[in-house]
Amino acid sequence: MISLIAALAVDRVIGMENAMPWNLPADLAWFKRNTLNKPVIMGRHTWESIGRPLPGRKNIILSSQPGTDDRVTWVKSVDEAIAACGDVPEIMVIGGGRVYEQFLPKAQKLYLTHIDAEVEGDTHFPDYEPDDWESVFSEFHDADAQNSHSYCFEILERR
């Protein structure tokens, strides 16, 4: 099963200049909980913004210009990325925008964090048809001392 995991502000903004323009430790914990011990696929820009392999996960970098870091697996196509994951129950696609666009048609599940923030962004989550998805989990949280904005975790499964 292919799943996408993303944090989205208003207007589906997911990033600005290779960074997330908010401070939500709870979302980072949600991300870790849902990706640990699963292969993660990301684009080169996302890889560069993280700066290191995510521990406890097979890191697969999709790029037309593969790098030389041998701590991760470099691939040039969506099919190659899927094959590099091996026989696993769930593959997690973690961004960025172009990689989400490439995998959305193949995805069966979306793990979304909806952030109540209007922020400037240069990267967006692809538009998706809500009628194609069923919400199977939703959990709202107010902003607090650690988390700069209110947010809602949601899991959607393709109908």
Results as ranks from 00 to 15, higher is better:
Q108V: 07
A19R: 04
A145N: 09
E154S: 14
P130D: 11
A145R: 06
N147P: 01
L24A: 15
Q108L: 08
D11K: 15
H114G: 04
K106V: 11
S64P: 03
A19K: 07
A9P: 02
P25C: 10
H124I: 09
I60K: 00
S3M: 00
F125A: 01
N59P: 12
W30S: 14
E154T: 14
E101H: 13
W47G: 00
C152L: 10
S49L: 01
A143L: 07
S64I: 13
I60E: 03
D87F: 12
A26L: 04
H124K: 12
I60F: 14
Q146V: 08
N59L: 07
A6V: 14
W30R: 10
Y151E: 00
K38C: 12
K76A: 13
R33N: 15
E118S: 11
L28G: 02
D132P: 10
T73L: 13
R52P: 07
P21A: 07
K76T: 13
W22V: 00
L62A: 04
M20E: 02
L36T: 09
I14V: 15
H124N: 08
S150E: 06
Y100G: 01
M16E: 02
L8R: 04
R12S: 08
W30K: 09
H114D: 02
F137M: 10
R158A: 05
T68I: 11
G97D: 04
V10L: 02
K58L: 12
E139L: 07
N59M: 06
C85L: 13
Q65F: 12
I155Q: 05
E118R: 13
P21T: 03
R44Y: 06
E134S: 08
R44A: 13
T68Y: 15
H149L: 01
A7C: 13
A29N: 01
L54P: 01
D127K: 14
H114W: 13
L8E: 04
I60A: 02
G67Q: 12
S63E: 01
R12D: 06
G121P: 00
R57L: 00
D27G: 02
V136H: 10
C152D: 11
D132R: 11
V10K: 00
E120V: 07
W133P: 01
V75R: 10
V75C: 13
L156H: 06
G51S: 11
S64Y: 11
D116V: 14
F31C: 01
K38Y: 07
I14T: 04
H141W: 06
W74N: 04
G51W: 08
G97S: 06
H45T: 15
R71V: 09
N18F: 10
L156F: 15
K32E: 03
D144Q: 05
H124F: 04
V88G: 10
A84K: 06
V72D: 05
G56L: 07
E157Y: 06
N37I: 05
H124W: 03
A143Y: 08
A29E: 11
P53N: 13
G67D: 15
L62E: 02
E101G: 09
A9M: 02
V75A: 07
Y151F: 05
E120P: 04
H45M: 05
I61T: 02
V88C: 15
G86I: 06
I5H: 01
A143F: 07
L104C: 03
V78K: 12
E48A: 14
W133I: 00
A143M: 07
P25G: 05
I50G: 00
R12N: 15
P105A: 12
N37L: 08
Q108C: 06
D87T: 08
Q102V: 11
Y111C: 05
E90R: 00
F140Q: 10
E120F: 10
V10R: 01
P130G: 12
V136E: 08
E80S: 09
E101L: 08
D79M: 06
Q65I: 14
E17R: 01
W22L: 00
N59V: 15
D11C: 04
E134G: 09
E17L: 03
M16V: 15
L36S: 11
S63R: 03
S63H: 04
N18Q: 14
L104R: 01
D127Y: 14
M16R: 12
Y151P: 01
V119A: 09
A81L: 02
T73G: 09
Q146L: 07
E80C: 07
R52V: 12
G43K: 03
R12K: 15
H149F: 00
S64V: 14
M92R: 00
F137T: 10
R159L: 09
W47T: 01
V119S: 09
W47R: 04
D87V: 09
E139G: 06
P21W: 00
E154I: 11
R71K: 11
W30V: 03
H45D: 03
E101M: 07
F137S: 11
E154A: 14
E80I: 07
D87S: 08
A29K: 05
L36I: 08
S63L: 02
G51M: 07
A107I: 07
V88Q: 11
K58P: 12
V72G: 13
F137N: 08
E139W: 06
E134F: 09
L4A: 02
E101C: 06
N37P: 02
I14A: 13
R52E: 12
N18T: 12
D144N: 06
S150P: 05
A9K: 00
F137R: 10
R71I: 12
R44S: 15
M42S: 05
V88W: 11
A7L: 01
D122A: 00
H45P: 15
M16S: 14
E157I: 08
E48P: 03
A26K: 01
W47S: 05
E129V: 10
P55M: 14
P53S: 14
S49E: 04
E118W: 14
C85Y: 05
V10S: 08
S63Q: 06
I91A: 15
H149P: 13
E134V: 09
R12G: 02
Y151R: 06
Y111W: 04
S49Y: 02
L62M: 13
N37T: 07
M92E: 00
S135M: 11
V10E: 09
G121W: 00
E120S: 09
E120Y: 14
I91H: 02
A117R: 08
K38S: 09
Q65A: 11
V78N: 11
S49Q: 02
M20S: 00
P55Y: 13
P21M: 02
P53T: 15
D122M: 01
K38H: 06
K106C: 13
I155F: 03
W74Q: 04
F103W: 06
N18V: 03
A145H: 11
E80K: 08
E129I: 08
C85G: 06
D11P: 06
E134N: 09
A19I: 12
V13I: 11
V93C: 07
E134W: 10
D11H: 03
R158V: 05
V136Q: 09
D127G: 13
A143H: 06
D144L: 03
E80Y: 04
R52A: 14
V72A: 15
V88P: 09
P55W: 12
Q108F: 08
A19H: 15
L54A: 00
G97L: 02
L28T: 02
H149K: 04
D11V: 03
R98L: 04
G51C: 12
E134I: 10
R159T: 11
F31T: 01
T35G: 01
L156T: 03
T68K: 10
A81M: 03
W74T: 11
G43S: 01
N34R: 10
Y111I: 10
F31G: 01
A6M: 06
E129H: 10
I155S: 02
D142T: 10
D87C: 06
H141V: 06
L156W: 06
R44C: 15
R57W: 00
L28S: 02
S138Y: 06
S63W: 04
D79W: 08
Y128T: 06
S148M: 00
E154P: 01
E118I: 11
A83G: 07
A9W: 02
S77R: 14
R33K: 14
E101Q: 10
Y128M: 07
H114V: 13
L8M: 09
A6S: 15
V72L: 13
D122C: 01
R52W: 12
I115Q: 01
P66L: 13
E120M: 14
D132F: 10
G67S: 15
E48I: 09
P39E: 05
L8Y: 03
P126D: 04
P66S: 12
G97P: 00
D142Y: 10
A145L: 06
F153G: 03
S3T: 00
M42A: 04
D131H: 04
A9D: 02
T68W: 12
I41K: 02
D142K: 09
L24F: 09
S77L: 08
I5L: 03
E120T: 12
L156K: 12
D127N: 11
P39G: 04
A19W: 10
S150F: 05
S49M: 02
G86Q: 11
H45W: 06
R52H: 14
H149T: 08
A6Q: 02
N147Q: 07
S138E: 12
V93N: 00
G56C: 07
P39Q: 04
